[in-house]
Design a binder for these strands. Structure first.
Length: 469
RNA sequence: GGCCCGUUCGUCUAGUGGUUAGGACUCCAGGUUUUCAUCCUGGCAACAGGAGUUCGAUUCUCCUACGGGCUACCA
């Protein structure tokens, strides 16, 4: 069943948690693999000891798992492949593709500051004697790739034909003076060794690709197919980064978004199904996915739409599943209450809450007496002492109510206002305020039934005491 | 500075050599509702600019502008 001609990978570096951009890259790789019945691998690019941390690897894997982007084994760590890279360096040395460069970092930097952006080729053609002399002097060296004249050309699955003159490519460094290999070098070896057929990554790698192709050629490897995804942008149209408050995947989990809604939104950021559908399950996404429908321009991250989408997911989820998800997210929610009560609450809030955490935030008054009253609500519903008179009379009729059910409650409300020749709102609003502390929410009759007679009467009493005049 | 890439409503996007340039989010108005939310109806809102090709360009070509990326002994 597995299609051997499709192997993709996601290669995060563990220098921080998985953020939105990385998640989208992972998603598109995963979708491509699913669609083509290929394999999806992970490679941890942990060769920067300064910034890499084990805990980030764990966080990233956790986030990917939560998203449901499961990967195939083996999981590769670059830090464990140093020996392999050394071998390849030897290969390139013997084949004459690299040369030693004795220029110091400072000198190169100085030249750049003076406007010479390219490596001048100082050490490109040193004589044997020169090299021997420098080595004897104990001068450290890097290894540079010797790039021939010519033009490089490749077909990007998203951007189309891209060509660059070799003159634009420096003889870039593949091994640092401390002997460690650089990114553009190892990425090629890893992708080759992993059998990667399609390299799908961010647009920031478009300019790296021609360099990497030089490595493929030097090593005698076949090139994979390349596809570059447009960037995700902040509201200022600059690449989304920590500066924008770079949303990490974990944040959305904590805020109670379903992973499906995040995935759905991410997919629509830069890709379109070719239809006017907006809502997709992860499997539907995989079916519909096609690199041809991927956009070239960067897309601005818009949390409003995510929020809407999340609301759609909430409404489409069964009450039981919602209840489980809410308690997964917030184990203390409704602790000590009957399950039947919780189910009723979820039922009532389902159409209002757009994320799991909103169920929690909007259900406070089902469990606890209000500690404060919404200020706008006070102005609207409890202007002066006349309300106290009205409510205290009404409470009396509530007390005598034989059955505390929403139907009876509603008829009590209605007969009371018709007797007084008032609008329904005149009585409902103050009651709402007293019982919930806020004017917004589901039907007051439903709320009162669930909250119970004793508690409602108590809350009304409290309000009458606290809100005179 | 150089190179590469991009540019349709505020945002995500569809689309064609001749369309009333379509949808979604947001926003606004109206309806439903005790309120909020939902739901329904309606509305605002875009082809960056300039040349050229053409009977005709949003669509094809070039230029300009703007935006992004790369230009590290980071990944």
């Amino acid at each position: 069943m597995i299609n051997p001609s499709v192997k993709v990978r996601f290669a995060p570096s563990p220098t921080g948690e998985l953020h939105i951009g990385g998640a989208r890259t992972a998603l598109f790789n995963w979708l491509f693999a699913q669609k083509n019945k290929g394999q999806f691998y992970l490679r941890i690019e942990d060769t920067d000891p300064e910034r890499s941390q084990e805990k980030y690897t764990e966080q990233i894997l956790e986030s990917l798992s939560w998203l449901g982007l499961h990967w195939d084994k083996p999981l590769l760590y670059q830090s464990q492949r140093l020996d392999v890279y050394k071998e390849r360096v030897k290969d390139l040395t013997t084949s004459g593709h690299v040369y030693q460069c004795f220029c110091s970092k400072d000198d190169l930097q100085t030249a750049r500051n003076e406007g010479h952006y390219q490596y001048p080729g100082t050490c490109r053609n040193l004589s044997e004697a020169d090299i021997k002399q420098k080595l004897n002097q104990g001068i450290g060296f890097t290894l540079r790739l010797r790039i021939p004249e010519g033009e490089i050309r490749y077909k990007d699955q998203i951007y189309g034909d891209i060509s660059v003159d070799h003159k634009e490519l420096d003889d870039f460094i593949i091994v640092r003076s401390d002997g460690s290999p650089t990114y553009n070098f190892v990425v090629v070896i890893d992708d080759h060794d992993m059998g990667i057929t399609h390299v799908i990554r961010g647009e920031d790698h478009v300019s790296n690709t021609p360099k990497q192709i030089q490595i493929y050629k030097a090593l005698g490897y076949d090139e994979p197919i390349f596809a570059h995804l447009p960037m995700i942008l902040g509201p200022d149209k600059k690449r989304l980064s920590k500066r924008h408050g770079a949303p990490g995947v974990q944040k959305f989990k904590n805020d109670g978004y379903f992973s499906g809604s995040l995935l759905n939104y991410l997919a629509l950021l830069g890709w379109n199904p070719g239809t006017e559908e907006e809502i997709f399950s992860i499997n539907e996404l995989a079916d519909a996915f096609d690199l041809k429908q991927v956009q070239k321009k960067g897309a601005v991250w818009d949390e409003k739409k995510l929020h809407w989408l999340s609301g759609q997911y909430v409404m489409a989820t069964s009450t039981d599943d919602l209840l489980n998800a809410i308690r997964d997210n917030e184990p203390d929610w409704g602790k000590g209450s009957e399950i039947s009560l919780l189910i009723s609450i979820v039922e009532l809030l389902k159409v209002r809450a757009k994320s799991l955490i909103e169920f929690v935030n909007q259900s406070e008054y089902f469990f606890n007496d209000p500690v404060a009253y919404d200020e706008k609500g006070l102005k609207k519903a409890w202007k002066d002492g006349s309300v106290n008179t009205l409510i205290s009379n009404f409470v009396e009729s509530l007390m005598t109510l034989p059955a505390w059910r929403k139907e009876e409650l509603e008829s009590t409300f209605r007969s009371y206002v018709s007797e007084k020749e008032l609008g329904l709102g005149k009585i409902i609003m103050p009651v709402r305020l007293a019982v919930c502390g806020t004017l917004n929410g589901p039907s007051i009759f439903d709320i009162m039934e669930l909250v119970g007679k004793e508690t409602c009467i108590r809350r009304l009493g409290t309000a009458l005491e606290r809100l005179p005049k």
